[in-house]
Design a protein around this nucleic acid. Structure first.
Length: 794
RNA sequence: GGUCCCGUGGUCUAGUGGUUAUGACGACUCGUUUACACCGAGUAGAUCGUAGGUUCGAUUCCUACCGGGACCACCA
């Protein structure tokens, strides 16, 4: 190691490849061992790692590394790594990269191409995680689109279908007319749009009935009119018919609480389907929908062919013109309102009835809340978000998608008798477009389902996917529930929720005992994002400050708390690295004649005992804190102890003893130095894996048996004689006196090394009797007298 | 509009029914001492968002409000 600086990058590279070569994080899976299993979040394969990734993956790695060391004796950590890569963004990426349209080749061919492309880019992508020191066993790898995941996902589908938890139904779903696919609620984005709010003249009871709308193009699809039962203006109309302007068909006037008296004219037209509310209203009242909008976003109105083939906006314009010509518009104003658009293309979403596959969840809300309650949420309040989401559910889980690159829905449907044909488990994974099956009932050739599963339908099975990886199955049984799920809070309603759903439906079990939810990295209080231009790449930071410094920073806020990003905050970690290096170098400079590393003095000096007593308290509290996922507390306690107790005080006290003494007194100091430094390194190793490994390998390796600090045993309390309460206080008094002396020297503008005559009160002298030589040395006092406290310079 | 989180020195953060309220960064003053100037010692800097309430006592518990944020809803 160079004098007082180390080449951060070189050091990191060295240990990274050492860990990989030596299989330090390898899951052995030997029988009868206790397994601490982690349901690692599979990052989405797109671009480089984001600072938010670095933040949350570091935090989960602290726990993984702590557990690995803690269970070294009796168990091990199961920490697999996956990537999430099926779905639309991958399709887009692959189309662009290969200059090909997915629709121009078969699904099987396109999937092959995607897989091939992913194979090329994934290693680089995963490298970011390795560089960050994330201690997964990367050989326990899955991708959510690989054969294994497909098999588990399809098996899940078949099982749930057989259990009656999956059904197929024609249902108006969120539809993007641009991408021509169903989309998930999670893919919606808000957008403020200007719109024309027109008040139209319906007829009821021979009089005008005014109704305001932003979607006049849907008039022909109007199937009812709602008024609030409390609204006296329209009470007499309830149960009667209203005549729709321009199209002149009649629709019922229905009383419904949902009609807002204050809004518009207080009368609400229900169309199939203008928005989500319409869908719900039509279902609730059992109305017959009239469909005029096609999947490609064009109109098709029987008997009114002049509007046909017009897109929504063109139709709106034309119909408004016609309404105006016929004097059917009472009033018009420009408004601005929020609409849902597809996050990928910005197109306003529509509700189009299509036949979709659903997983029943609405009938299980209570059970799902109960399941959630059985899991330990850290922080606890995150459970509330889960609970709110479940309680607010309005739809069953729609799992079919009109996409190409995804896990195929493993069914064939007989056109003749509508029978659904499932594959055998041993055939999985299957692509129903590639294989032919005959109907089991009428022996007709059945049609393969064209659609694929929602990506969450697969990623909700990560525990089942990871635990059944071939590499795992051979050596161990990783059981449900897993010990831990780490994730961020934005996907509680998706990933956490769907995973809980699946393991409830399959195993009647919770997927994990604990869940830890990390916060976000913010910039000036707001969530960082690429679109706001506040996305920050960790790579540059890792090179400038060191990966350990970045991780040190990530350990600076407690679990679930957001942290505002300031580059200067990385300086602290970098300084800490330097301090560790220097302190270690100094310790071992003084251990040159202390070869074995295990040599104990016949009797420990009192001061050393007092110091080790403090160290024991730190070990205890650090262990507890890590167990409670309070890594930030564990980190800051160790940080404080190392810097201010160990370096600023203990080292200063003991260095003179080592220089000047011989025999047991010296050995006591050396033993204490060796033991405490190694302990401190281990306590901070989960946070700073690189520098602790470097120091361990440089100095400790020859006398310690484990080949890496990361698979060494977590520190246990050091055996020292039990101290009385009175004795415990001595250490604080010692530090207090030292501080006072330093204060005097500082005021006098003298160097800390200047020689003094120290005068202490009798009470102090008595208490410090057993450590008086050490005090004398650290204060550089020629003599210590009894009397009123004073510091005289010689 | 609903649910939830946060509001502590200039900045970022810890913490608690009674503490001289933590630490880091920054600032300032000293000090080159055989680990470290990416250092050491010291100093200044916080009425703990505001207003009430509970309490012998609140920064900590409760209520309201203000400010920031997240998720959801909002589409007539």
């Amino acid at each position: 190691m160079p004098k007082n600086k180390i080449d951060i990058k070189k050091t990191e590279d060295k240990w990274k490849s050492f860990w990989e070569k030596e299989g330090i994080y390898k899951f052995e899976g030997k029988k009868r061992k206790k397994i601490y299993s982690i349901d690692t979040p599979p990052p989405y394969v797109s671009g480089d790692m984001h600072i938010g990734h670095a933040f949350s993956y570091s935090q989960q790695d602290f726990i993984a590394r702590f557990r690995r060391m803690l269970h070294m004796k009796d168990g091990e950590v199961f920490y697999p790594f996956g990537t999430d890569d099926n779905g639309l963004p991958t399709e887009r990426f692959v189309e662009k990269k290969n200059r090909i349209k997915s629709k121009s080749i078969s699904r099987a061919e396109f999937i092959e191409l995607c897989l091939k492309t992913l194979k090329e880019i994934t290693p680089d992508f995963i490298q970011d995680w390795k560089d960050l020191g994330i201690s997964c066993d990367y050989s326990l790898y899955y991708s959510t689109i690989d054969k294994h995941s497909q098999k588990i996902s399809q098996k899940s589908f078949i099982e749930l279908f057989k259990q009656g938890d999956i059904y197929r139904k024609e249902f108006p779903t969120l539809w993007c007319t641009e991408c021509q696919t169903t989309i998930a609620q999670a893919e919606l984005e808000d957008m403020e749009k200007d719109s024309l709010f027109s008040t139209l003249k319906f007829k009821a009871d021979g009089k005008d009935l005014l109704i305001a709308t932003t979607r006049p193009e849907m008039l022909r699809a109007c199937v009812a009119v709602f008024v609030n039962p409390k609204d006296t203006r329209y009470k007499s109309l309830i149960g009667k018919k209203a005549k729709v302007p321009l199209f002149n068909h009649e629709v019922p006037i229905i009383e419904d609480e949902s009609a807002d008296i204050e809004k518009g004219t207080g009368v609400l037209m229900i169309c199939s389907y203008g928005d989500k509310f319409d869908v719900e209203a039509i279902n609730r009242h059992g109305l017959n929908p009239k469909i005029i909008l096609g999947k490609n976003g064009t109109m098709s109105i029987e008997g009114h062919e002049k509007y046909n083939s017009l897109r929504v906006k063109e139709a709106r314009k034309k119909i408004l013109e016609d309404l105006r010509e016929n004097g059917l518009i009472e009033e018009q104003k420009q408004i601005s309102h929020v609409v849902n658009v597809h996050d990928k293309c910005g197109t306003e979403i529509e509700f189009v009835p299509t036949e979709q596959w659903f997983i029943k969840i609405l009938d299980k809300k209570k059970e799902l809340v109960k399941q959630g309650k059985k899991i330990n949420w850290h922080p606890e309040f995150m459970f509330k978000r889960y609970e709110n989401w479940v309680n607010g559910l309005e739809w069953d889980w729609s799992i079919s998608r009109e996409r190409h690159f995804g896990v195929p829905i493993p069914v064939w449907i007989c056109r003749k008798c509508n029978e659904i044909i499932l594959p055998e488990e041993k055939e999985l994974p299957v692509d129903p477009l590639q294989e032919r099956k005959k109907c089991s009932k009428c022996n007709e050739l059945a049609e393969g389902e064209e659609r694929v599963l929602d990506t969450w339908a697969t990623s909700s099975l990560t525990p089942q996917i990871a635990s059944s990886l071939p590499a795992v199955k051979k050596t161990a049984e990783v059981k449900m529930p897993f010990s831990l799920r780490p994730q961020a809070h934005d996907i509680i309603r998706t990933w956490a929720f769907y995973t809980i759903v699946k393991s409830y439906l399959h195993e009647k079990e919770i997927p994990w005992k604990d869940i830890i939810i990390s916060g976000f990295v913010t910039h000036k209080g707001e969530k960082m994002s690429k679109s706001k231009g506040t996305g920050i790449r960790p790579r540059q930071l890792m090179e400038t400050y060191g990966t350990d410094a970045l991780r040190f920073w990530a350990a600076g806020s407690k679990l679930g708390e957001d942290m505002d990003y300031h580059e200067k905050d990385l300086i602290t970690g970098k300084k800490f690295i330097t301090k560790l290096v220097n302190a270690s170098r100094f310790v071992f400079m003084n251990l040159e004649d202390y070869s074995s590393g295990k040599r104990k003095p016949k009797k420990l000096e009192k001061l050393d005992e007092l110091f080790l007593n403090r160290l024991n308290a730190l070990i205890k509290s650090s262990t507890e804190n890590f167990k409670r996922y309070e890594y930030s507390k564990a980190k800051s306690e160790t940080e404080q102890f190392f810097w201010h107790v160990f370096c600023d005080n203990y080292l200063e006290i003991v260095k003179k003893r080592i220089y000047n003494e011989k025999g047991d007194k010296k050995i006591s100091a050396q033993y204490t130095l060796y033991t405490s430094l190694l302990t401190i390194l281990k306590l901070i190793a989960p946070i700073m894996p690189f520098i602790t490994e470097e120091i361990y390998q440089t100095y400790f390796k020859k006398s310690e048996k484990e080949k890496s600090i990361h698979i060494s045993k977590w520190p246990e309390e050091i055996k020292i004689p039990k101290l009385s309460k009175k004795e415990e206080g001595i250490f604080d008094i010692m530090i207090e006196i030292i501080a006072k002396v330093r204060h005097e020297k500082s005021i006098a503008k003298k160097s800390m090394n200047s020689e003094i005559v120290l005068t202490l009160e009798r009470d102090f002298l008595e208490k410090l009797e057993e450590v008086i030589d050490d005090l004398k040395a650290v204060a550089n006092a020629k003599e210590i007298r009894e009397g009123k406290f004073s510091v005289e310079f010689v």
